[in-house]
Design a protein around this nucleic acid. Structure first.
Lengths: 340, 340
DNA sequence: ATGAAAGCGCTAACAT
DNA sequence: ATGTTAGCGCTTTCAT
């Protein structure tokens, strides 16, 4: 880094003052054609690139936005980040990416690091929405923060997904097929997607006049491992559920694996609904009914909210956008055995 | 950003000189207990965070590493980035992420931006390895660059995957089952993974003493869309191939979709091998034989090479690491009809 | 139209 | 042990 030419080198080569070089590079009006040419030639010759660190320091603006998220190898999250980067870059911002792995300590570390790096805004998922320390640290930031599919703290902007309606639709659909023992697998209730799915599930059950105990909720994680473990244990109970809702982005593979291991077939022995519409859901055999939403829209919208804040609307009330979900019915659900 | 307290504010609050604050914060020896306590209390009270932009400027070191890649919504790439971020962060580096979308212009833009931001190293996939302009721009960078699964330019470090052997194994396996019309779908030969897969394919065919024309190569893209399009067209030829190798990370879904649309069944009508071992490959029905490798290892190794350079070994010869691939045989391949 | 110089926040070298 | 100051590369204000 030390060996890069500086504006001083350019000025020297062009035999002008450094202020003049700056003016040329920033397109100021009062520069003579002759000088402008000399400067540009010197820039070319030295392969000069302005130091954005120095610019940031001088101007007090970094044009960097940070994104902290659980794990981008989860397809749903990768789309969000991918879309966010594309929009940000097209607006001249640079994305700084960090993986939280759902660890609170790491989230706090990252928050501090973002602050030190003087990023101008943050897009993030918090792992523990109810954690007061975390919320306190987030709120005392002086830059805009946009939450991804999170509710807390309430004074922040957020783009959320309508998991509640998606899960309610799935539940109603399964009840309509005649299922009376439906299991919902989802994350800890300390995160919004899990809470909303559970709420939608209960609404669906209640709305059909059924007893809530006809549903079984396993709330503890979004991972494939969790899906596998809980599905395995559910399938060993008697009577076992006749339908499972895999309420997490990367959970489906574990659920399918467990069903396969138990030698059961979909939808004859058990119906399955996926909480996200992935390649796997669409192309499994049979194809899996899924609650679909767009991670790309989520990422774009998050940046939208953020740019609105950076554009000057710093003090307005929390902006909340909820993106719709849609139940895509496929062949993975059928009436349970006893009903047919 | 303007309202953050500076070291000067801390110094004032603690009634010491700014140099003293700096010494306390950087753990220098010669500081009295009393002063140290006063400074830390002031830091606490003001919620002071040192400005890393200013530190970068002063020290000439940013502790930032950039990663530019095609599209992180491709599962294989997301794992690479995810792993790279984890290692980098644990070493005190911050990851700056950019999506190239395989556009040369964007790659050139990004290279320039990285240079301006004074990142200390770059991890990237180039879209057009043969492009002299791109190679020239990369080579004139003064910071370490690690290529992901790319060969060009040859003076750069790279971590690559042994697609050649993986594809040769797949080809030999299919030939061994009795297939004589095998199709390989893969990307443009301007990228290493495609070239290597084609080479491995041809080696496999040649090694079995078969005529090369028993193989059909469609080289044009890694996307699901490409897989769908080419598979559809291949399935309409007569005689149609009896086996397809989906030689790309996100291609399998398109291939399976096309096979499904044509009403064919795997492996009775056609055998399939996937170029990456994804959830979809493992859990499709039937499960798909796949060439497996570890994106996580790839990302970690890339950072390893990079840290080695940053650790001082700037001038050594290009470091090249090739990670092995493994053929995971599953139920998607069987002898073709005429052989059974 | 151009030059000179201040100053962004910080660290380290030099004083004391 | 602590204060003072130069200077990192840049933009911008103030002269001229």
């Amino acid at each position: 880094m030390g060996e890069s030419p500086t504006i001083r080198d350019v000025a020297h080569a062009a035999r002008v003052a450094i202020g003049t070089v700056s003016r040329v590079l920033n397109g100021h009006k009062s520069v003579s054609e002759d000088v402008r040419r000399r400067v540009l030639k010197a820039v070319e010759k030295l392969n000069y690139e302005p130091d954005r660190v120095a610019q940031s320091m001088r101007l007090g603006v970094t044009r960097m936005v940070a994104c902290a998220t659980r794990d981008i190898s989860i397809p749903g999250l990768a789309s969000v980040v991918n879309a966010a980067e594309e929009v940000l870059r097209s607006c001249g911002y640079t994305l700084l990416l960090a993986i939280t792995d759902e660890r609170k300590e790491r989230e706090l570390d990252l928050l501090r690091m973002f602050q030190q790096r003087r990023v101008e805004a943050i897009i993030m998922t918090t792992s523990y929405e109810e954690d007061v320390e975390l919320c306190r640290h987030i709120k005392q930031l002086t830059i805009p923060v946009v939450l991804l599919d999170r509710d807390q703290p309430p004074e922040l902007d957020a783009v959320t997904l309508d998991h509640r309606r998606g899960t309610r639709s799935a539940t109603e659909y399964l009840l309509g097929l005649g299922h009376s023992r439906i299991a919902l697998l989802t994350g800890r209730p300390s995160t919004r997607p899990a809470r909303e799915r559970i709420a939608g599930f209960n609404e669906g059950l209640a709305g059909a006049g059924r007893q809530a105990h006809r549903g079984v909720v396993k709330s503890g994680g979004f991972s494939a491992e969790f899906g596998f473990r809980e599905t395995s244990s559910l399938l060993s109970t008697n009577p076992r559920p006749t339908a499972i809702i895999a309420g997490g982005m990367g959970m489906l593979s574990g659920v399918l694996q467990a069903i396969r291991v138990h030698g059961l077939s979909i939808p004859d022995d058990i119906s399955v609904v996926a909480g996200a519409d992935t390649d796997l859901a669409a192309l499994a055999t049979p194809p899996i009914t899924a609650v679909r939403w767009s991670g790309t829209d989520e990422g774009r919208m998050a940046v939208q909210l953020l740019l609105n804040r950076l554009g000057g609307n710093r003090k307005g009330p929390a902006q909340r956008v909820m993106l719709s979900t849609e139940l895509i019915t496929r062949a993975s659900c059928a009436p349970p055995r006893n009903v047919r």
